[in-house]
Computed example of a mutant assay.
Amino acid sequence: MENIMWVTNYTERSDFELVGLFSQSKHPTLLCVVIFVVFLMALSGNTILILLIHCDAHLHTPMYFFITQLSLMDVMYISVTVPKMLMDQVMGVNKISVPECGMQMFLYLTLVGSEFFLLAAMAYDRYVAICHPLRYPILMNHRVCLLLVSSSWILGSVDGFMLTPVTMTFPFCRSREIHHFFCEVPAVMKLSCSDTSLYETLMYLCCVLMLLIPVTVISSSYSFILFTIHRMNSAEGRKKAFATCSSHMMVVILFYGAAVYTYMLPTSYHTPEKDMIVSVFYTILTPVLNPLIYSLRNKDVTRALKKMLNVVSVLQEPIK
């Protein structure tokens, strides 16, 4: 009984220590500056994309509505991890309290889970647009879009509500050092002094389900899309259809590939260093790449950006 009380008190009172990227780097100051610049690029790129879509009436379509939600999720989940990491490096502190760790874990799981389902909704949107163009305004009306987006957020929060409380209620009586730059579930679970094998199996099944449903929707949608494109007589139509879908497929491959490695591969494939590199990729780099992928490869977005820049330049001209 005394041992149990000691473990419980130790768990409640002790903070975690995030042994993250900077402790592994030979040039932590330079790395901190690079991550700060990347963070600003992600914030500005996604914010500009949201503003462009909001201000340009030509972009008020279901596809761009989903892109604004994707950008919003990217802004939020890079903000969950990076500011804390940068502030700790500047202040010379690497501690995070148990409640803060739990909140960070919940927000991260919710946002990543929501993005899984949002990418599936975007694939379905492309399927309807290419395979049923005449019925597209009816099948993808504003109410349907709101339903798909709200469902993505709700299903993502289910992931957070399921995994976070269970993970944070395990007794932690080993080293308090989390070999990661934020409170990710696999990294925190390594600190538990109890048997977590059953929970890890259930978490694996949960992640498989969270990935299986969106992957099924995405693969089915693109199978029908490819079949429809193959039957098109117009070369211009095929080119436009491929251009519309290629941006989304690039984002899907980047995001899902990293998630499969983190949550579905056996522990024998994982090391703290590999886990941090993969997490950097889809936590910090993906939010920067998404707006670039959707803007540089999209003529409508580049046209809207040029229009906005022209308006800004006209407003800045001195009045004669």
Rank of each mutant, 00 (worst) to 15 (best):
E12S: 02
Y10S: 00
V7E: 02
T11S: 15
P28F: 10
L31W: 01
Q24C: 01
Q24W: 04
K26H: 13
F22P: 05
S23L: 02
D15V: 01
N9A: 06
W6E: 12
L18A: 05
G20D: 05
I4A: 15
R13F: 00
S25P: 03
N3P: 03
K26E: 12
G20V: 02
K26D: 14
G20I: 05
F22Q: 07
W6D: 07
R13K: 07
Y10L: 03
I4Y: 15
T11C: 12
T8D: 11
T29L: 09
L30A: 14
L31I: 01
R13I: 01
S25T: 10
I4K: 15
E2Q: 14
G20N: 04
I4W: 15
K26T: 10
H27W: 14
R13E: 08
E12I: 02
S23R: 03
E12N: 03
L18Y: 07
M5P: 01
C32H: 10
T29Y: 14
N9Y: 02
F16Y: 04
L18Q: 08
K26Q: 15
M5H: 06
V7R: 12
L21W: 01
P28C: 13
S23G: 05
T8S: 13
S25W: 11
T8Q: 12
C32G: 11
G20T: 07
F16C: 07
E2K: 09
N9E: 00
F22H: 04
R13D: 00
E17A: 12
L18F: 09
